[in-house]
Design a protein around this nucleic acid. Structure first.
Lengths: 143, 143
DNA sequence: TCTAAATATATAGTATGCTATATATAAGAT
DNA sequence: ATCTTATATATAGCATACTATATATTTAGA
């Protein structure tokens, strides 16, 4: 059976994701951030005080993955966790001042990588690429 | 600063790669394979007897990553490593009969996932998507 | 030739992802 | 009110990725 890597969406997406992660790490590492932490901060910069469960839903990772990421973020002084006022099981994730201060530089770094990556494409191709990514994500999530 | 996840190539690619990996795991797991093992087998099915260094180049992963993947593959009876005839530092990675027998079913599983993922796209959009992935990979590798 | 640089592999440590499992609390059902 | 089920979080164990480092061998250069 033939299988051409360069024509496999799964293979190529895996490769590209590793390249993006590598570049992101290079640019936000100096800020004291790692990629999964940045992804989590994107939600918290939008809405401070989410629960772990809400972050899990919004970022589509497993609960155990998020629990570990939040532990590392607390260790690194990016978040605090305070008791949920109405639910003794839950805790609210709160940004520290340190994490709030990183919003500008970290988002700029990520935007820069996206811009570099798509630099060789026409505006129409960029739009089509983003739309297709979103569409395939939707397709695979439904299964 | 605004940062829309649904318009970030890096964010979307990370998400999609996780979805692809999850589906691939579900379909090749029952064959006794994991995604990185499958990726490595793709090269070895093409060319049996590669060195670790050659696999590293072809798959664009770090040497330590490949060393660990090969250890797990040897543990699982998918490969043997034999001394390189001309270079005492190196070893040749050889497929076992077990690994050879998995080529058809594993490739079929991966093709099936790719087909499912792209099912909602026109043929032209599929081609464009694959071409764009390859192009962006090229761009980011050059940096 | 002998030393220095390059190459092939291995290992340690860490981050991020997963599944499976455990515990605590909340909500619903009878 | 009690019992069952659902929800929120934590933890253990593993795969895959990374960087940094170590060792062995080969190649190149003085």
């Amino acid at each position: 059976m033939r299988f051409d890597k360069t024509r496999s969406a799964g293979f190529l997406t895996n490769h590209l994701a590793r390249l993006f992660a590598h570049h992101l790490q290079a640019r936000i590492g100096p800020l004291g951030l790692a990629p999964a932490q940045f992804m989590t901060l994107l939600e918290l910069w939008e809405t401070d005080g989410l629960t772990q469960a809400e972050l899990v839903t919004r970022l589509d990772v497993e609960q155990a993955t998020m629990a570990n990421t939040l532990n590392r973020m607390a260790r690194d002084g990016l978040i605090d966790r305070v008791p949920h006022p109405e639910d003794k099981r839950a805790r609210l994730v709160r940004l520290t001042d340190k994490a709030k201060a990183l919003e500008g530089p970290a988002k700029a770094a990520a935007q820069g990588i996206n811009a570099d990556a798509l630099a060789g494409l026409s505006e129409a191709d960029r739009e089509r690429f983003l739309a297709t990514l979103n569409e395939i994500i939707g397709t695979l999530r439904r299964r």
